[in-house]
Write a protein that binds this DNA or RNA. Structure first.
Length: 566
RNA sequence: GUACCCAUAGCUCAGCUGGAUAGAGUAACUGGCUACGAACCAGUAGGUCGGGGGUUCGAAUCCCUCUGGGUACACCA
């Protein structure tokens, strides 16, 4: 596509030697409203150089620049020089690109196949997959898709919480009160019940904790019985999780969780010792991080067992050796900020220059109206229930509005789940929020169903109008204001994907396609698309096609389906 | 106690590396289906950008400070 912004920079650069092309390019901005232009060049900073008022400089510049075929007009507005892109050229370069590239519009090989690891979701086995897990799961999945779309070789890792004293508790509890058949019927619920019972009984009977520690130690010692039980619990838990992952259409390249790194700890401890960064304190091993404004990091307990800081370091080293990553991304809640900052600093102190390539992507907390989520206190909303409720609601809306629709169940699933994902990816990651059924099940306004509806509407036009990629397009037909507003959003879409990647913020894409859907619906309501005149009709349908395609690509990057009918 | 994060319309949130009159959705009120899909569109109303200083030609945006909310800080993860 034509790079209009660069063209602006070239035009200004051509009449001014004081600043370099790059400096000029960096100064160019987008006006608050398109009525003012597509690009603006502010002249405030030039006032000192030229010793003239900004307004005068803008006028001088305008006179020197004159006119250009890429712009319908170039106007002075006070201290700004505003550029109005040629609507016809914009339509032509944009629509042609979408028609030619189809569903790869906006993709690139920027990543040059470099390897990016995205660690996300990572639930604890034997615990329910609840609403608190949705963020890491959905954000991580979207980031993985975005990186892949930009040409990176993405490895998705589900770092399962499948190790630690909690498994000592589970084994201990199972041996006391467990029943395999009962558990097999409803694994998570029964395992959770065992876990809760163990914790409450342990409050009155402290030796239970010793028993739990004993069983965890046995697990580490590869006691056959312990391993068999652990493996079984892990398997049935994963089976449960996969039901949700299947609904969300999410897959992983690796489920190497905490347990996977247990035998890699001694070597890491040795390395830290040999580099002289650990010291003994109160019988435990620590790394002093005071110099970096952090409290000391505990590496090994006094009983000789390790902690998750050590495990994360071991995991990072293993991943560097095994995957040779370019970026190693962790989509984990902001509560873990200090933990990540600390262990990444330790990796740096160990002398690994790749420490800088490890990136923690934090996100805010989900809570319930009753308070913070707590499985043990029963304050929990299961993700599967949320998804199913959304699907049921969608189903009843379809029955009411479009009872003759084919394959209603599939569509209800696409829309119900899409609504949840879209909502989740609509705001900045860092924001906390309180889960509410009303908000989650809202299908009007800036929502997933709204965007999907727009997509289906566009599709319906293409079918009715017998759209064909090979038909001739008259770009003069697409220079109205409503059309131009749509085209601008399509033109900007590839850059939005880049922003989303650079800032690791999928919501840029979410917002962008909502804006596109709004612009399209406005156009739809004001313009007859399927008209008698063939050329006119085909031209408008080309715009409809491009809109549909960009919505589909955008939703796809968020992990959301775009049904053709709904 | 220390560190980090958040604070914009009744509610939920955008506002790009400081730039031109602070924008959406939702809730409230009003209008539009004999129309290519009304899960839609158009309109009205709604804000001292938590308070106070500072830097700057210019601050919702950067710095300081206060207030309010959240999170994390040694043998859990």
């Amino acid at each position: 596509m034509i790079d209009f912004k660069n063209r602006v920079a070239e035009l200004i650069s051509g009449v001014m030697d004081e600043l370099s092309l790059d400096e000029i390019s960096a100064m160019i901005e987008v006006p608050p409203s398109y009525e003012m232009g597509d690009y603006a060049f502010p002249t405030f900073r030039l006032a000192k150089i030229f010793k003239k008022a900004p307004n005068i400089i803008a006028e001088d510049l305008a006179e020197k620049v004159g006119s250009d075929e890429y712009f319908d007009s170039i106007k002075v507005a006070g201290p700004y020089l505003n550029f109005f892109i040629s609507r016809k050229k914009l339509a032509e370069t944009t629509i042609k690109d979408v028609l030619a590239r189809g569903d790869s519009f906006g993709s690139s090989n920027l990543g040059d196949n470099k390897r990016v690891i995205v660690e996300f979701s990572s639930p604890n086995i034997a615990k329910p997959f609840h609403i608190g897990h949705i963020r890491t799961t959905v954000i991580g999945n979207a980031l993985a898709k975005i990186y892949a779309f930009l040409g990176f070789d993405v490895i998705k890792i589900n770092h399962l919480g499948d190790y630690g004293t909690q498994f000592g508790m589970l084994i201990s509890a199972f041996k006391r009160w467990g029943d395999r058949d009962v558990i097999e019927k409803d694994p998570i619920k029964e395992l959770l019940a065992l876990y809760v019972r163990f914790n409450s009984e342990a409050e009155e009977n402290p030796e239970l904790k010793d028993e739990a520690r004993y069983w965890f130690k046995e697990l580490e010692n590869e006691n056959e019985e312990a391993i068999e039980l652990w493996q079984w619990i892990r398997d049935i838990s994963l089976k449960e999780f996969n039901r949700v992952y299947d609904m969300l259409n999410i897959s992983f390249d690796s489920y190497a969780g905490e347990s996977f790194y247990s035998d890699k700890m001694p070597a890491v401890l040795e390395e830290m010792k040999s580099k002289g960064i650990v010291e003994e304190s109160e019988g435990a091993l620590i790394v002093d991080l005071e110099e970096y404004g952090m409290p000391p990091a505990l590496i090994m307990k006094k009983d000789g067992s390790t902690l998750y800081t050590t495990r994360d370091i071991a995991a990072a080293i293993y991943r560097k050796d095994h995957y040779d990553f370019y970026k190693n991304i962790y989509v984990v809640a902001s509560q873990q900020n200090l933990h990540f900052k600390a262990w990444m600093k330790i990796v740096e102190l160990m002398g690994h220059e790749w420490a800088k390539d490890c990136i923690h992507i934090p996100f805010g907390m989900v809570s319930l109206e009753e308070g913070t989520l707590s499985t043990r206190k029963g304050r929990v909303v299961f993700l599967e229930d949320v998804l199913n409720t959304a699907i049921d609601k969608t189903k009843s809306i379809i029955e009411e509005r479009n009872p003759t629709l084919e394959d209603k169940d599939t569509v209800a699933k696409q829309i119900g789940i899409g609504a949840i994902l879209f909502q989740e990816l609509f705001n900045q990651r860092i924001k906390d929020y309180v889960f509410s059924w009303d908000r989650t099940l809202s299908f009007e306004g800036e929502t997933g169903p709204y965007v999907q509806y727009t997509h289906a509407r566009a599709n319906s036009l293409l079918e009715k109008g017998d759209f064909d990629l090979l038909k001739e397009v008259d770009f003069d037909t697409l220079t109205g204001l409503d059309e131009t507003n749509i085209i601008r959003l399509i033109y900007d879409f590839p850059e939005t994907i880049l922003d989303a990647m650079e800032k690791n913020e999928p919501f840029f894409i979410t917002r962008h396609i909502v804006e596109l859907a709004k612009a399209f619906n406005k156009f739809y309501n004001s313009t007859s698309i399927i008209v008698e005149d063939e050329l006119e009709k085909d031209s408008r349908l080309a715009l409809v096609y491009a809109t549909k395609m960009v919505i589909k690509i955008g939703l796809g990057l968020l992990g959301i389906d775009a049904p053709d009918k709904m």
